[in-house]
Amino acid sequence: MNIISDTGKYFLLMRKVFVKPDRTRMFFRQFPKELEKLGLASLPIVIIISVFIGAIMTMQTQLNTSNPWLPDYITGLVTRDTLLLEFSSTIMCLILAGKVGSNVASEIGTMRITEQIDAMEIMGVNSANYLILPKVTAFMVMMPFLVIFSIAIGLVGGYLVGVFTNIITTGNYLIGIQYAFVPYYVLYSIIKSVCFAFIITSVAAYYGYNARGGALDVGKASTNAVVNSSIIILFFNIVITNLMLTK
């Protein structure tokens, strides 16, 4: 029953969020701040994880596909498609659900328990719109850039394996990452990530906005936000993949 009740409350909250802001000027003041806080601030973790995952994926693929029947460039191809189809758009979003989701839920949750949201409501401000809309839109705008950046850095990680080890040659790797490239996969990856960006911020905002009690409850809201947004992401990953990739 909680799922039904929470889903209903979530959509009611979204109805308050997606309306014209009381002051457009205030929205555009918040928007770049959120771009920086949720998007640019996530770059270091995206870079670190992508470079290492790209490298390890190349090593694992090469070590497990050493077969005379398979062409030498297969490692680059597998690395590229894995990064493009799944890692950068889904796994990276799951990681960002932890970082961004907990940030959003705890920020809004703290504002709730310290009566800052009540203060806004009493002033006559649509607090849901003022607080949540800039976060959701900013992260949806930033996510495609983060995903493309992650793919690029992941490919660089794989290339570095060729440079610093003798597991694979850089020549074979470069051929592999260019071989049989399907540009549609980039579109698929971007669309998926934009949907996930919406899920991460809106679900986290829902849990933060409905936090009650004290610091402990903000922690719980933050945990619930991360866990539930991760589950929803995995579910929609199947739905979107089924819609966009199956014929």
């Binding site: 800052q116 203060a119 006559g124």
Partner: peptide, 19 residues
């Protein structure tokens, strides 16, 4: 009610200033 609230000022127990 939102319009009415613009005529209302509120001092909260914990001040509720925006961090």
């Amino acid at each position: 009610i939102r319009l009415l609230r613009r005529e209302v000022g509120m001092l909260f127990q914990g001040s509720a200033l925006f961090d």
